[in-house]
Structure formats: structure tokens, C-alpha cells
Simulated assay, not measured.
Amino acid sequence: MSLFRLPSKLVHELHRMSSQFWWDSTEEQRRLNWAPWHKLFRSKDCGGLGFIDLTIFIKALLAKHCWRIIHNPNTLAARGLKHCYFPETSLLKANCGSSSSFLWRRFMCGREIISQGSRWRIGDGTMVGIYSDRWIPRPSTFKVISPIRLGAMATVAELKLSSGA
């Protein structure tokens, strides 16, 4: 289930079945509505019942698979995917071609979630683009907002070299 995105119609049907279990009253048996439906999906810390929204849960599982490939690049699965789909770049910068496999398209869904919530740690700066990557510790976009004025300079490491440090 962690690599398959369920159709929205199926997710809606599963949620409907869950709500019927909790609140469906019949003439023989009357059930009490414990909480509004939208509160069921809140965490228990926030006053909800802690039910899991399946679409969000499956997206999180897909992101977890991508995270493992990024942090364990020497595994057989990571090496196979790199060889087929992103031999010259990283997983975060790979493209989803028109003839990509079902598995790779699912990984692209997980990659979107990771790219929304991650940013670079500079290190030596050779892999981090000045204008294209998220590396600024500012929560608005985490990117440089100023217009491109540095010409051919592309990485943060080149900024360090040009400043004479």
C-alpha cells in the first residue's frame, strides 16, 4: 500500500464506511454522535480522535521511500533507480518522463513532498545553486529573492571564492 496512491473515490468510500460505523443509526439501534466528522482527523493532542486521512498517510509513506533512497544511495533499489531515471543528477532534480514506470511516478509524488519541506545545508557549497535551490534560513521561500546579477556564477561555493574568503 505504501507505493500505491488510492483513487479518491475509494478513499471517499472508505471514509464513508468509517463514518457509518461510528454514526449510522438504525431503527433497532441508535448510536450517539461523539464528535463532528472533521474533528475525527485531528490528532489527539489537538482534541480529535486521531483518525488517519488515507491520502495524506500514503503520501507520507511515498515521501519516506524517497527519503530512504536519498540517504541510502548504495542500496540495490537506489542504485537501480539512479541508473534508470537519474544517472547524471540527484533524485530531487530528476525528471518524470512520459514513458516512466508506475513505480517511478509514485516516487515523484513523494519527492514533491520532500522538496516542499527540505532545504540545503551548505557544506562546501558545490552542489547548492544560488538561485535555484532552497538554502536561505528564511521561512518565506528559503530561496534568494533578489534579481540574478551574478552572471555565470551558479553555486554557493563560487560566492565564497568571489568574496576572497
Rank of each mutant, 00 (worst) to 15 (best):
S99M: 10
S25Y: 02
I56L: 15
M108E: 14
S99N: 13
D24A: 13
I114R: 06
P36C: 07
S98Q: 11
G110I: 00
S118Y: 05
I113Q: 07
C96T: 15
H65F: 14
L40A: 06
T26D: 05
R31I: 05
F41Y: 10
E88W: 13
F107W: 09
P73N: 05
L61Y: 04
W67R: 06
A63Q: 02
F102H: 12
L81V: 01
H71R: 14
R42C: 11
L103F: 15
P36H: 08
L76W: 03
W104T: 03
A35K: 14
G97N: 14
N74D: 15
H83Y: 04
Q116Y: 03
K59R: 15
F41G: 03
R31H: 13
I58W: 00
W104S: 02
F41P: 04
D53H: 12
E28Q: 05
R105Y: 04
R106C: 05
W104D: 00
H65M: 08
W23F: 09
S99I: 01
E112I: 08
H71E: 06
I69F: 09
I58A: 08
L61I: 04
S115W: 00
I69Y: 08
S99D: 09
F86V: 02
G48A: 10
F102Q: 07
Q29F: 07
C96D: 13
K59H: 13
A77Y: 04
Y85R: 01
C46T: 12
F57I: 08
T55H: 14
W67D: 08
L32P: 09
F51N: 01
D45N: 11
F51E: 09
A35W: 03
K82Y: 03
Q29N: 14
M108I: 14
R79W: 07
L91E: 02
L92E: 05
R42F: 06
I69E: 01
W104I: 01
A35V: 13
I52R: 15
T26N: 04
M108R: 12
H38Y: 09
R30S: 10
K82I: 04
R106L: 10
H71I: 03
R111E: 00
R111K: 15
L62I: 00
S98H: 11
D24H: 13
E28W: 00
E28R: 05
D53M: 04
A77S: 11
S99V: 04
W23A: 03
I69P: 06
K93R: 12
